[in-house]
């Protein structure tokens, strides 16, 4: 199949950047989206042009490295799918696709389609953990956890930290990311201890990084490759509210 690609090129963080058009004439429907970009890059390199920089690693939908805005939707049109698992058969011969990096003040563009997501790490550093040291942990079966609760924790823990929620949100808010981590830990007795303090610390860090506020549009949930529910955002609000008035 033939495709026209409009791809964001930007030399570095300071550069203004702009869209560049490329034609691909021989795209196999069995290719993944990233393999399609590989083909384009090999082509560019053979011509002596610098290939398009884009982030990717595991290419099996779990590491959360890939970060492409494909035709206005993070990770492209397939629900619950990362760009690396998106296959070209989703598109039609003759399509024109616009490929952009995630856009957020807290995710500055490094080059072309590569953005800097260390702000997510700093949010986790602010409190996205259980404060236990190695050693001294009691037997794993000491505290029974209802299966339903453990399952909810796992639903939230499935977050791969890709940032599609931020990319999709009209406010570039990181609430779904923050809520997923808070929800994962908050639903387990081990993490519940620090629940309120965690909610406060992570939300404040999120604000500091320059992410926007959530206005409950729920495009984050729709864009999330792991389909994490916005219920976790409601829970985070609850924990934050309780933390605000509990005085601790």
């Amino acid at each position: 199949m033939k495709l026209t690609l409009r791809i964001w090129r930007q030399k570095n963080a300071q550069d203004k950047g702009g869209l560049e058009t490329h034609q691909l004439d021989d795209v196999s429907p069995d290719m993944s989206f990233l393999e399609m970009l590989d083909v384009l890059n090999e082509d560019l390199l053979e011509k002596g042009t610098e290939p398009i920089a884009f982030d990717h690693d595991c290419r099996e939908g779990i590491c959360g490295t890939c970060s492409l805005m494909i035709d206005g939707v993070p990770h492209g049109p397939d629900r619950g799918t990362t760009a690396c698992q998106l296959h070209m058969r989703t598109f039609k011969d003759g399509d024109t696709l616009t490929i952009e990096p995630w856009r957020a003040k807290a995710f500055p563009v490094v080059k072309d389609l590569v953005v800097d997501r260390t702000s997510f790490d700093r949010i986790i550093q602010a409190g996205g953990y259980v404060s236990v040291n190695t050693g001294g942990a009691p037997d794993a079966n000491l505290i029974p956890i209802p299966k339903a609760e453990a399952d909810v924790a796992m639903d939230a823990a499935a977050c791969i930290g890709c940032g599609a929620c931020v990319a999709a949100c009209k406010n570039a808010s990181a609430m779904l990311f923050v809520a997923a981590k808070a929800g994962h830990l908050g639903h387990l007795p081990q993490g519940e201890v620090e629940k309120k303090a965690r909610a406060r610390a992570m939300v404040h860090q999120m604000d500091e990084e320059g992410f926007g506020a959530c206005t409950n549009t729920y495009d984050c949930e729709a864009a999330c490759p792991k389909e994490i529910s916005v219920e976790f955002i409601a829970e985070l609000h609850r924990d934050y509210r309780k933390g605000l008035f509990s005085g601790r």
Partner: peptide, 12 residues
């Protein structure tokens, strides 16, 4: 034990 204490959501 360690991973459970850290909040790893093992299947139950």
């Amino acid at each position: 034990d360690q991973c459970t204490a850290q909040g790893v959501p093992f299947a139950r």
